[in-house]
Design a protein around this nucleic acid. Structure first.
Length: 456
DNA sequence: CCACGTACACCC
DNA sequence: AAACGGGTGTACGTGG
């Protein structure tokens, strides 16, 4: 079976095939770097101002609570308290104020001080009024110093911002983006998401995006030929909902018949589907029972405690449900131990020499890297094929309309397209994403059209 | 002043 | 006993 540019599926290391695959995507990668994406700088400046005034407000609130407290430096004596310093926070909260909460007080791996990350402080939110303020200060400080302040400084004379896509950095063949990194623009929190409002289409254009849906899971289904996974995707069912039903003993069709707006359904989604979704990702990443426990603990802000045994059972049930997936992963572990390498569906090799180590900790690390390579690397292959297919389409449309390739964010492609042709373009894009590399299951993708990135 | 490691936070 | 895959950027602290 031959795909675009002579690329084929091959279950053995094949650098020549990978070379063809990567070469096909390069023209579009190059265009993306040259084109750049238009940035609304005044908007980012206003975000910066909002953040700065809230930060100074928080600093005065905190000072009013801690009075004359000063940080006691190990060698420099008393120094003014700085809210940005983790050392200062550790001493203030856990030594000076000695706050207590319903969670453990952890030390950093080096044992130098207590952990003051947002995750670790969450169980102490109610212990002292300054704790939530400190968490808020740090979260908005991140947005300001990483996004709202630096980005406007990097635009060209057309107000466009150009990233570098590195093609030889990620071991799985993914692209990485730097100077600036446009693959980690915030989306999770409402304020963070606002940063996306600054990425806008050219005049007379829309941003058009195409998104591979569940592409790593579909590759897992393809590579393992797991009958249940294949059935789920063939029927167009929700894989995470299906997992939840299998693990918690419910009937899929029964759950799906519930009113989606009912409290019952929302509770099921939160308590059973969400953990199952985490489980699905986690399993692909070589999840351990302890890792899952930690994940659930932090995600519930210390409210839900699952014993390790329960987590292990939860993981085992996942593999009981999808037995062929376990076999695929064990094949990868075996290859990693035996050959010190694994490969994806296109023959892209990932070296994991540490998997051969006789130290369990080291070899487990190697196996975890190996375990995810097939899915992540093959998924990236799919997107690169779609980029290769789209290149001439973009070139052709660009003869009559404005049409620019902008960004690749792992399973998503973003373009800047004349409004008159955006709808048609998005249909073509969706088609290419869905048919660039056919699997034993359908490869669905979504498409979207909007004025700004936040609305995509 | 610079270089580096650590801790943390953001993304898929 | 046990840190779940792949990335980049920032601030802080230390040491040259």
């Amino acid at each position: 079976m031959c795909l675009f540019g002579g690329v084929r599926y091959i279950d053995s290391p094949c650098p020549a095939n990978v070379w063809r695959l990567d070469a096909g995507a390069l023209p579009m990668i190059s265009s993306m770097q040259i084109n750049g994406i238009r940035l609304d700088c005044p908007f980012l400046h206003s975000l910066t101002s909002r953040i700065l005034s809230r930060q100074s407000e928080i600093v005065s609130l905190v000072s009013s609570h801690i009075g004359a407290y000063q940080y006691s430096h190990p060698s420099h004596g008393l120094t003014p308290f700085s809210i940005g310093s983790r050392d200062h926070l550790s001493q203030l909260l856990f030594e000076h104020l000695q706050i207590q909460g319903h969670g453990p007080i952890e030390k950093t791996p080096t044992g130098k001080r207590y952990v003051v990350s947002e995750d670790s402080l969450a169980p102490f939110k109610c212990s002292h009024p300054i704790v939530p303020l400190i968490i808020e200060w740090h979260s908005i400080d991140k947005l300001r110093t990483t996004y709202t302040e630096p980005l406007p400084r990097l635009v060209d004379s057309d107000s466009r911002i150009h990233t570098h896509f590195n093609v030889t950095v990620a071991a799985t063949g993914r692209l990485s983006s730097s100077s600036p990194n446009l693959q980690n623009i915030p989306i999770r929190t409402p304020l963070g998401r606002e940063v996306r409002r600054a990425f806008i289409a050219s005049p007379g254009c829309y941003l058009v995006s195409g998104d591979e849906s569940q592409i790593e899971m579909r590759w897992a289904a393809h590579g393992s030929r797991d009958p249940i996974m294949i059935e789920v995707f063939n029927r167009g069912e929700d894989i995470h909902a299906k997992t939840a039903c299998g693990v918690f003993g419910r009937d899929y069709n029964d759950v799906m018949s519930w009113d989606q707006n009912s409290e019952k359904f929302k509770r099921w989604k939160k308590e059973e589907r969400a953990p199952s979704k985490n489980l699905g990702f986690g399993v692909l990443y070589g999840l351990t029972a302890e890792g899952l426990q930690r994940n659930i603990l932090t995600e519930s802000e210390g409210e839900i405690y699952w014993p390790v045994e329960k987590c292990q059972t939860f993981i085992n049930q996942f593999f009981t449900m999808y037995p062929a997936l376990r076999e695929l992963m064990e094949t990868q572990y075996r290859r990693a131990r035996r050959y010190g390498m694994v490969w994806d569906a296109f023959g892209r090799v990932r070296l994991v020499p540490e998997a051969k180590s006789c130290h369990r900790k080291i070899s487990n690390e190697g196996e975890r890297k190996a375990g995810n390579h097939y899915e992540q690397s093959s998924a990236q292959g799919t997107v690169k094929l779609a980029m290769a297919q789209m290149s001439p389409v973009v070139e052709d449309i660009a003869k009559s309309y404005k049409c620019l390739s902008l960004l690749q964010i792992h399973d998503q492609l973003i373009f800047d397209v004349d409004k008159r042709i955006a709808e048609e373009f998005s249909m073509i894009l969706q088609g290419e994403l869905e048919h660039a590399s056919p699997l034993v299951v359908p490869t669905l993708s979504s498409r979207d059209i909007a004025e700004t990135w936040v609305d995509l």
